[in-house]
Simulated scan of single mutants.
Amino acid sequence: MPAGVDRLKEAIRDVVGVERWFDLSNETLQLLLDEGFKPRSLAGAQLLTRAMCNHRTLDEPAAALERLVQLGAADIELESDGLSNVYGPDSHLENALFCQRGSLVAPMLARGALMTNGVPDQAKLDRAFWIAIVSRLLPQARLIWDAVPGLRPQLRYPDTSKKVAPLLSVVYLLGEWNVSNENNGAAMAQWLASLGADIRSKNAAGETLLHMAADKGDAELVRWLLEQGLSPNAADEDGRPAVVSAEEETTVMLLLDAGSVDEKFKPELKRRAEKNAWRRVLAWLDASKP
């Protein structure tokens, strides 16, 4: 398309102000309010849901969203989407957590997001806490932990990937993180451990938290778990230690330096190291030859 046409299109967009209708801003919200829009309505709830998870504006100031919450949009819950996965958002509060809108959590809690008919709801409390962990939002997880006097979130959650759902320590939720936030793993694991969460248990596949952290390439969490005494040689149900599926060279080296590797896994590890140009890993493997 000729450059002149592109410039004309941009000029028209600027004059009309199209962009303000793509993403929620204070200006857009005020225009809607001036036209009689009622935030505390089904339409307001739908607008809040779409705007919270609009990933194009995750780095934008959340003032318009916070104002929408204060005007009551979060008071109207949408019909459940029927998600069976405990990590999936099923309320405005859970959406805010899942979509990394941490600044909306406190105002939603203040408006009773963890209540049902004026009574604290244990199920809502648990789900919000679990999703805060999945999303690695430590300040918000702390808020939720203390949100209801006399009531705490559960530190074990059902593994719904199994027909008979066993209860797992909440630390395993760190292995299911929301990909838009890969931080806070070690800090959150340390805090959860201080609350009494078990960091040494295995899931139904025989994996330790070290396996999951290594698989995600979370070097900081791997380092902290090793410092807590978790064995780098612990095997899952298939007999594989964490290093075999570890991502990122730094993570692999942490595990190699902390323990040995069975000879039968070295060829696979070498192929991965060659494919990813992990020079330190290749040097370690060469030095460990019998």
Rank of each mutant, 00 (worst) to 15 (best):
N85W: 14
L285R: 12
Y157S: 02
N203R: 04
A246Q: 11
K264L: 11
G206I: 09
M115D: 11
H55S: 14
K216I: 04
A3L: 14
P107V: 00
A73G: 07
S260I: 07
P61M: 10
L225V: 06
P267D: 13
R152H: 14
A62E: 12
A165S: 15
E248A: 15
I12A: 15
L97M: 04
L47A: 05
N276H: 12
Q190I: 07
E247P: 04
G150W: 04
Q140A: 07
A235G: 01
C53I: 11
F22T: 14
W224T: 13
A132F: 01
L269M: 15
A273C: 06
M108N: 02
L285E: 03
W278L: 05
V69M: 07
N26W: 00
E94A: 07
W284H: 14
A73V: 15
G150P: 03
P39V: 00
M52L: 15
R111Q: 14
L174G: 06
R200M: 12
R101D: 05
N26H: 02
F37E: 13
K289V: 10
W130Y: 00
M1W: 04
S231C: 05
A189W: 03
R271Y: 06
A74Y: 07
G4K: 13
L31S: 11
D218Y: 14
L83C: 12
L167D: 11
E220K: 08
K38V: 13
F37H: 07
R40N: 11
I199D: 03
